[in-house]
């Protein structure tokens, strides 16, 4: 895929009268810019899900893909740690029940995704400031961002040094260094992700309103976007 493809994805979303990209679409755009994403495939039905799960290898994660459902987790639209075909079948049935709760939800399918273990969850985001244009945000995921608002911001374009500063600026930084026997995160991979997001934000400045990669898994070697959400202007 190339940068033109991102425009195509966005165009198609707009044609459908949408402003919100699904996880699958969002991550396609990320991968065009070289931000690594989880190995994943969009399955149309149960049989395809089983096939993809075998290709990817258990354990897998199953996620509902629908432009009408932005808070998947809250609705029970994410099933993690699926270890066998039997568990997959159960999870699939569960996911399909969401239709009862969200009437007329347009379901694109089910995303079968590799299950990453051993990593720190970070969040990488972008919002548009009326004065300064795109602003990049970095923080540790979960409660750190939600309760403590322990995040750092910078305005792109960013240098490697900027990206490194952003990472080190947060209070929870020692966790990324592997505090208390935790995982030591791959600093270069994180810096690369920030720089690529910076490039993406500037290229698509006219199109994007805000976006999140949450979580971005920062592993000992490499990083991968596990979930992402892009909102158009």
């Amino acid at each position: 895929m190339s940068k033109e493809d991102t425009i195509k994805i966005i165009k198609k979303v707009r044609e459908e009268g949408r402003k919100v990209l699904t996880e699958y679409e969002s991550k396609k755009i990320l991968s065009v810019y070289g931000i690594p994403i989880t190995r994943e495939k969009l399955a149309k039905d149960l049989d395809e899900s089983i096939k993809f799960a075998e290709e990817i290898g258990y354990p897998v994660v199953l996620k509902i893909v629908s432009p009408d459902i932005t808070h998947k987790t809250d609705l029970g639209g994410v099933k993690i740690g699926i270890k066998s075909q039997k568990e997959l079948e159960e999870a699939y049935t569960d996911l399909m029940r969401i239709k009862d709760r969200v009437k007329d939800a347009n379901i694109h399918g089910v995303l079968v995704q590799e299950m990453l273990r051993k990593g720190n969850e970070v969040i990488l985001g972008m919002t548009q400031d009326p004065q300064f244009g795109p602003v990049i945000m970095f923080g540790l995921g979960g409660v750190f961002v939600e309760v403590l608002k322990d995040v750092s911001f910078k305005i792109p374009p960013l240098t490697r040094r900027d990206a490194e500063d952003m990472i080190k600026e947060i209070k929870a930084y020692p966790i990324l260094e592997g505090a208390r026997g935790g995982v030591v995160s791959d600093m270069n991979a994180l810096i690369d992700c920030i720089l690529k997001l910076s490039e993406l934000s500037l290229d698509l400045e006219e199109e994007l309103k805000e976006m999140d990669i949450n979580p971005l898994f920062a592993m000992e070697k490499g990083a991968a976007a596990v979930d992402s959400l892009i909102l158009l202007r």
Binding site: L148, D150, K171, I175
Partner: peptide, 10 residues
């Protein structure tokens, strides 16, 4: 507990 007390000194 844990990481919050050690790293964030909260």
């Amino acid at each position: 507990g844990g990481i919050y007390v050690e790293i964030l000194k909260d």
